[in-house]
Structures are given as structure tokens and as C-alpha cells.
Design a protein around this nucleic acid. Structure first.
Lengths: 146, 146
DNA sequence: ATTTTTAGTGGACAAAAGCCACTATCTGCG
DNA sequence: CGCAGATAGTGGCTTTTGTCCACTAAAAAT
């Protein structure tokens, strides 16, 4: 078991890192999307979630709220809803061409921001940082390193 | 410069880790405090921020909103406002005895949650995880390792 | 076949957060 | 010094975000 001191240090890092992510997230969606709208676009575009329920439970959002937010995105022409072939209560979500354009923009900007965050580090330090992230990813989320 | 692939992996981790932190944050303040109230308590109790403005800018919150939230905590008897000796526009924030009690409770719970998160890992893995967090802390926030 | 669960939705509402304007102080500067 | 501009805290108002509940229709379970 980790010492209390180490636990506290991780928690401090959590708070600090949450703060920088918060700042980044505010700027990202200076595009046209609000932060929850952007999150939903990412879940559909990147993680290929197709049902509103999947999106809601992944993001920890209320079904109702998720439904409304998705419908807003449909109205803006970024997402389309197709009838689900397997469950006629449900729908299949998909990015429209315009939605894919916006999604690509979000990705590009987000990448840029992250690059910006580590700009001051040397190449060796950047790789060291990446290795640490990859280790955390491996240990907490069981994704294999590379 | 890190490859796009590595950047993308860090971003994926960011989203996943944000999600687990989000879940944790919801449960923490099942105590009596809302999440922003808790954050403010932590900033005052742990990082010893004394002025409302410091709290606001650190948490990236609106001055007005911060002011109201602090006043709510004052009314609940968790924080007290003393006149600042150096600036009579400002105030000095301090936890009351009751506030310190609640603060200690938040800390204990938060520690427990983090311990819980890494419960499944072996001792060696936990230390490996800590080392990774410490490296990130060092590289991004210049805090020295230990 | 009937009960129970689940997906999506709308209405009403609560909580979180931001914007603007105002007061009182403080700071910098001619 | 005296005054222009900045800053700290606050209240009113609005927007955004998110929750709760009830309802419909379809699916799954019994």
C-alpha cells in the first residue's frame, strides 16, 4: 500500500492536472460547440458509440439531457440519426460530413494544445513524459504499451 | 516532438482519467458539500489561499460566483472572513474548527477513493504507478520527486 | 401472454457558472 | 498631493448544465 504522503501527492497532481485540462477544454470549443456537445461528438467520432444510451452512460450524463443535446447536434447538421436495425426503440448515431469536418477540427486543436503543454520540455523529457502516461494507461486501463 | 499517435494516446488517457476523477468527485461530496464548495474548502485548507480572488483565479471561476459560494460556506459556519490587514477591500479566509473537521473528512474520503482505485494492483505495480505520477508532476509542474 | 425492463423523449426544475454594473479601496503617475 | 485607472468583493440577471419524473413504445423475461 502506498504511503499517505504518496497518495496525497497523487491527489495534488490530480487537482493540478484537472485544472490544466479544464483550461484546455474551455478553449477547444471556442469553435461552435459547447463542452458537452464536443464530448458527445468525440464519443461518436472517436469511440464509435452509436446509441444515445451508450454515450450517456459513458459520459455519466442523464439520459434526458443527452437526448436533448444530441438532438441539438442533429438540428445543427453535425449528427444524423438512423433507425437501429436491431432495436426499433433505439437509433444509430453517425457524424454527417459536416460533423466529421468539425470533429477533425476538434482533434487538430486538441492535439495542438497538448503539444503546446509540453513545448518547453526537451525531446528526451517529452519521451519520458509519454512513457509515464503510457504506464498509467497500462496499469489503470489495461491498455498495452507501445 | 511526439508523434501524433502518442499525442492521441495521451489525449485518450486524459479523457479516461477525467472520467474516473469525475466519478470520484461525485461521491466525495456526498458529505454535505457540493463539488464547487468542496473545491473551495480544499484550496483554503490545503493550499492556504486566503483571498477570494486567489481562490477564484486558481479554480478558474467567476469572481461573483466565488463570492456567493464562499458566503454560503460562511453561513454554514465552515469558513470565516477576517478583515485583511493589508487591503481593506479584501478579506482573509480561514477554516473554522468545524470547517477543519469537514476538510479532514474530505481528505480522508478522497484518500480512500484513490486507494480504492489502485486496490487491484500489486505493491510493485502501485509503486510503478506512483513513479509515473511523480514523473509527470516533475515534468509538468516542476515539483521535485521523492 | 403478461409483467418487467429498457431507449428515447418532453416538461419542470435545480444547480452551476457567467455577465454586467456598482461601490469602495488601492495603485501609479503627472 | 490629487486624480485616472485598476482591483476586490458583491448583487441582479441570464445562460448553461444537469437532474427528476412521467410517459410511450418496444424489447426481454417470466
Amino acid at each position: 500500500m502506498l504511503t499517505t504522503e504518496k497518495i496525497r501527492r497523487i491527489r495534488q497532481l490530480n487537482r493540478d492536472y484537472t485544472r490544466v485540462l479544464g483550461v484546455m477544454n474551455k478553449q477547444i470549443f471556442g469553435t461552435t460547440l459547447s463542452w458537452p456537445e464536443g464530448r458527445i461528438m468525440i464519443e461518436i467520432g472517436l469511440n464509435h458509440l452509436t446509441a444515445p444510451m451508450q454515450v450517456a452512460s459513458r459520459l455519466g450524463l442523464d439520459r434526458s439531457y443527452t437526448s436533448r443535446t444530441i438532438n441539438r447536434l442533429v438540428k445543427r447538421g453535425l449528427i444524423e440519426k438512423l433507425p437501429s436495425p436491431t432495436d426499433s426503440r433505439s437509433v444509430q448515431l453517425r457524424l454527417t460530413p459536416e460533423g466529421r469536418r468539425v470533429f477533425a477540427q476538434i482533434n487538430t486543436r486538441s492535439d495542438d494544445q497538448l503539444v503546446d503543454l509540453i513545448r518547453d520540455l526537451s525531446t528526451a523529457e517529452q519521451e519520458e513524459l509519454y512513457a509515464s502516461f503510457a504506464t498509467i494507461d497500462k496499469l489503470l486501463f489495461k491498455r498495452e504499451g507501445k
